[in-house]
């Protein structure tokens, strides 16, 4: 028996909106730790890892570890039927082949049940070891989204370089080139407006903008995005989900031919 009651149902709606175009189907895993997912995009270039910790749920019952295969567009379609202020409860029976999403309006005058068929998904689970990153950039998530969107009008790839001067996002296309430099600025009025760069060594990596743009669909989940870079590793683009966990996107770099 599984029963997870999330007061802030909009969080789950936003999570699905942020991953449904990147990943078509995935196993959601539920254990005492929480509700989680790890999935790759169909070309195995990017990976998404989601964790919603059990403490973040108003009620969290998970009698045994369970893995539920879902088609994400279908799940997103059902969650779109929940109001932004609704409480969402996820329910499933052990060994069952369906999951139920229950939506309660804030004043309890409307209760809806949506039952969705589960599917068997043979997915590869990857072990991601803790890593030391050469540079970690924290910046407003809206600023990062704007940069990715702007650069993708010029080119297909972005070179992210971190030096003492700041973080530089560059691209090149048929019509020309673009460079956007963001300097550390920790002395702003609001902490969520700050750009903070922790650099151990300069680093420069190239990534496909198509994926970066897809990751920025998680912008509504967090004011701040953290970008961790190391020359031998995929970049990690992390959005913290208020008091509950995180959504992390890993993207393998492109290398010179």
């Amino acid at each position: 028996m599984l029963e997870l009651r999330l007061l802030q149902g909009s969080l789950l709606k936003k999570v699905l909106e942020s991953i449904k175009d990147l990943v078509t189907e995935a196993n959601f895993d539920c254990s005492a730790t929480g509700f989680s997912l790890q999935a790759m995009d169909s070309s195995h270039v990017a990976l998404v890892a989601l964790l919603l910790r059990s403490e973040g749920f108003e009620h969290f019952r998970c009698d045994r570890n369970i893995s539920m295969g879902m088609k994400l567009v279908n799940m997103a379609m059902m969650l779109k039927c929940a109001g932004n202020d609704d409480i969402i409860t996820i329910k499933a029976d052990d060994g069952g082949d369906t999951v139920t999403f229950m939506f309660e309006s804030p004043n309890q005058d409307k209760i809806a049940d949506f039952e969705m068929k589960l599917m068997n998904i043979d997915s590869e689970h990857l072990g991601i070891p803790e890593a030391e990153y050469q540079a970690i950039v924290r910046m407003p998530s809206s600023e990062f989204a704007r940069i990715c969107k702007d650069l993708s009008t010029i080119g297909d790839t972005v070179i992210i370089s971190v030096t003492k001067e700041g973080v530089k996002f560059s691209t090149k296309g048929d019509i020309g080139t673009a460079n956007i430099v963001c300097r550390q600025n920790a002395t702003v009025d609001k902490p969520e407006d700050a750009i903070i760069i922790e650099m151990k060594e300069p680093v420069s990596l190239t990534f496909a903008l198509r994926y970066m743009n897809s990751f920025t669909k998680a912008t509504p989940l967090a004011n701040i995005v953290t970008i961790s870079l190391s020359s031998e590793l995929p970049v990690v683009v992390e959005y913290k989900i208020a008091e509950m966990g995180y959504i992390r996107f890993y993207l393998a770099p492109k290398i010179e031919e």
Binding site: M40, H44, H125, L126, K172, A208, A252, K254, E256, E257
Partner: peptide, 14 residues
Amino acid sequence: RGIQLSITEFYRST
């Protein structure tokens, strides 16, 4: 431009 690496080249299957 460039060769796109795969995520599975970096992380092991568990």
